[in-house]
Design a binder for these strands. Structure first.
Lengths: 210, 210
DNA sequence: TCATTCTTGTTAAAATTATAACATATCAAT
DNA sequence: ATTGATATGTTATAATTTTAACAAGAATGA
């Protein structure tokens, strides 16, 4: 029951450690040090060890970490030992890009259905995934117990989409629309807002010029 | 010649404030308080004022902020008072989604060219933007003085793309490939890594279940 | 003019996160 | 067995970032 608060940045890095460990394993590497992990992520060895220390002891002193074991442990921490059912809202360009994106499958995420309101899209499939009428979204999510909803529509209607997902009792939402989305506290939500990063870039370019 | 170190989170929020102010202005709102801005972003008024205080005094005590003026000031801080020349690497689904994304144009970013290595794509246009051979990338960036390079190709070749952009003396890179990219310090770089946020979501869902 | 109300800008305190230092454990060689 | 080299796990320190409190400026109305 002891609850230590773990920085979100640590979780973000764990996800990246896991990806790095995948690469190492694919290259036949069996042992890795915090030093090497840090190098692979442009981070520091101390931080790697600190991040892992929140969750236990996974290495061997004087030796390092077993690549495969550590990756398994991290995946367990992140909840990636089982599949996740995801649905997508928005059958546009971005939605299509996401359906065809390798990263979902390789990490255990299955996009089971797409929802849109364009009549000419409904009934079609995109990358093998069926497109349904958004009117069926709430029922579908409830019936299929989909856990993750992905919003890939313009910001004007993103909050509506989120509301529907919440109504269907979704567990988590990944929002790609560049806008603020509000959901009740029991629903996890993160936004992937590339416009904001673009402007971080321009700020830095402008600032460093001076 | 930076007098003070400003948190990146502050820059991120400034970008979001600006977007919020755009919306207000479009709705005819002329005055806004830090309280209202905070509400619009699920933040706190103190943080809004603190963020702005890094850069100057933009409001009137007892009154609030002039929506249009504040937005102009923020845009100036972020370097958005002039256009930015961007090029895109990758004419796939994601690249297509980005070219057609409203957010670029509305914030002053112009994607001038796309680069790919697929012969059947080279010579075509996507959303009115010409697709060139990636072999021409370095020359193009130098000649046109493109400032921002957007990487939208699979991770296996993302670092190569970054290297070419750097070679062309790009100022900033926005990387959409789910991998670590290394660039020299004079080049600004940010990654938009949705896979990582996906796993933050699963971590939180798993953790809150217990 | 003066008092009241409102909201900013600023300063101080608290909380969080990252960095560094070090003690401990393991392995290998002698 | 002992020593030396190595790399982890942990603790302490430093840096950063957020939160809160409050003083000060501006508008309004008596």
């Amino acid at each position: 029951m002891k609850t230590q608060k773990i920085p979100e940045a640590t979780i973000v890095r764990l996800s990246m450690y896991s990806r790095f460990l995948n690469n190492l394993a694919n290259n036949g590497v069996t042992i890795v040090s915090s030093e090497e992990i840090a190098k692979g992520l442009n981070g520091s060895p101390a931080q790697v060890r600190k991040d892992l220390a929140y969750f236990g002891e996974f290495g061997t002193r004087g030796v390092g970490y077993n690549v495969r074991d550590l990756n398994e442990q991290i995946k367990k921490i992140l909840g990636l030992t089982h599949k996740w059912k995801a649905i997508l809202v928005g059958a546009g360009h971005l939605g299509t890009a996401l359906i065809n994106h390798k990263a979902f499958k390789t990490r255990g995420f299955e996009i089971q259905a797409v929802f849109d309101n364009a009549p000419q899209k409904i009934g079609q499939t995109i990358g093998g995934v069926p497109v349904y009428d958004v009117a069926e979204l709430v029922d579908y999510v409830k019936r299929e117990k989909a856990q993750i909803g992905i919003i890939a529509i313009p910001p004007a209607h993103a909050q509506e989409a989120a509301d529907l997902l919440v109504q269907g009792e979704i567990k988590a939402i990944l929002n790609f629309a560049p806008c603020v989305i509000t959901v009740p506290p029991q629903v996890e939500m993160r936004s992937v807002d590339f416009t904001v990063y673009l402007e971080v870039l321009t700020y830095n370019v402008e600032t460093n010029r001076k």
